[in-house]
Amino acid sequence: MSNQDSSTIELRLLIEAIYLKYSYDFRDYSGASQKRRVHHALHQMDCASISELQARVLHDPDAFMQLLQYLTIPTSEMFRDPGFFRALREQVVPHLHTYPSLKIWIAGCSTGEEVYSMAIMLKEEGLLERSIIYATDINPQSLERSRKGVYPLDRMRAYTASYQMAGGKGAFSDHYTAAYDSALFDRSLIENVSFADHSLATDSVFSETHLVCCRNVLIYFNRKLQERALGLFHESLCHRGFLGLGSKETIDFSAYAGAFTPLVKAERIYRKAAA
């Protein structure tokens, strides 16, 4: 048996062990991406093999939490893909204004940059006070960072440029306070945000929503898990609700291709088809 075959077996055993021990299900995540992350974790956690890493994870919950940071890649940006947010403002917000109250689900919210981006946009459009945002992720450390809303100050210049390209209506700096090397975002932005642990692999729908954003998450899933996630979004969305995906993601060729109609296809914004 080749070393490559042994490594593949070890990886499958590690993922199965994580599921059995901690109920985190990575079994239907993309194999190639998963392998890269685990091998990176090996070096960072000073393990000679995946089997050694598995033993550590099984007997040390802290080691599992450390590994989880590599498995989930908690990285994001504010107003990432500005064209997406501009399209939301111009094409989706007018429809959202017709609802007396709004529920928005940001699935796979990571460290919260997209949550604050969405809240800023809703505030500028006069919708934030009547909105509830569900921000979910499987990584508790990422959720805690989201709640705190503290980000490196040196990123603000790039975020400001993205905010402006996304159709921002004021000064981006009005939404945060600079202190030392960090930027603390206004607490009022998340007064109506509910941060919660939720897995697209194992959990079910928890509320009817008007808009679901799940961007740059499906690319890490295999086809089976992508279908499950799209099914959850479809079930969650109200009649003619809206779905936003990442720039490299699509519902084309999925079982749900006919369940949505493109609203702004170039920006991966879809609308739930009429029943």
Rank of each mutant, 00 (worst) to 15 (best):
M1E: 10
M1D: 12
S2N: 13
N3V: 08
Q4R: 11
S6A: 10
T8S: 06
I9V: 15
E10N: 12
R12A: 12
I15P: 06
E16V: 05
Y19R: 13
L20D: 12
K21D: 13
Y22C: 06
Y22D: 08
S23H: 14
Y24S: 00
R27W: 08
D28N: 14
S30G: 04
S30L: 05
G31V: 08
A32H: 09
S33D: 08
Q34M: 15
R36W: 00
R37V: 02
H40E: 07
H40Q: 11
L42D: 06
H43N: 09
D46E: 12
D46M: 05
I50M: 08
I50S: 02
E52A: 13
R56Y: 01
V57H: 02
V57L: 00
L58T: 14
P61F: 11
D62T: 14
A63K: 11
L67I: 04
L67T: 07
Q69Y: 04
F84W: 02
A87H: 04
A87S: 13
H95Q: 15
L96H: 10
H97R: 15
T98W: 05
S101Q: 13
A107Y: 03
C109V: 03
C109D: 02
S110R: 01
E113D: 06
Y116W: 13
S117P: 10
S117W: 08
I120S: 04
M121Y: 01
E124L: 07
E124F: 00
G126A: 03
L127E: 01
L128E: 14
A135T: 02
T136I: 11
P140E: 09
S142E: 07
L143Q: 01
R147P: 05
R147D: 03
K148F: 01
V150N: 04
V150H: 06
D154G: 03
R155F: 05
R155I: 02
R157T: 14
A158S: 09
A158D: 07
Y159M: 07
A161E: 15
S162W: 07
A166V: 05
G167E: 08
G168Y: 07
G168T: 10
F172I: 14
S173E: 15
T177K: 14
A179R: 12
D181Y: 07
S182V: 11
S182A: 14
F185G: 05
F185P: 05
R187S: 15
S188Y: 00
N192S: 15
S194N: 09
F195I: 02
A196W: 03
D197W: 08
H198M: 12
L200Y: 09
L200D: 01
L200E: 05
S204A: 04
S204W: 00
V205K: 07
E208I: 00
H210I: 08
H210Q: 13
L211H: 06
L211P: 12
V212E: 03
I219P: 00
R223N: 04
L225G: 14
L225C: 01
Q226M: 10
Q226P: 01
E227C: 11
A229E: 10
H234P: 09
E235F: 00
H239L: 10
R240V: 01
R240Q: 11
G241K: 02
G241A: 10
F242N: 01
L245W: 00
K248N: 00
T250M: 06
T250L: 04
I251Y: 03
I251P: 00
F253C: 13
F253N: 14
Y256S: 11
A257C: 13
F260Y: 08
L263K: 10
V264L: 00
E267N: 03
R268L: 14
I269L: 13
R271Y: 06
K272M: 02
A274L: 11
A274D: 12
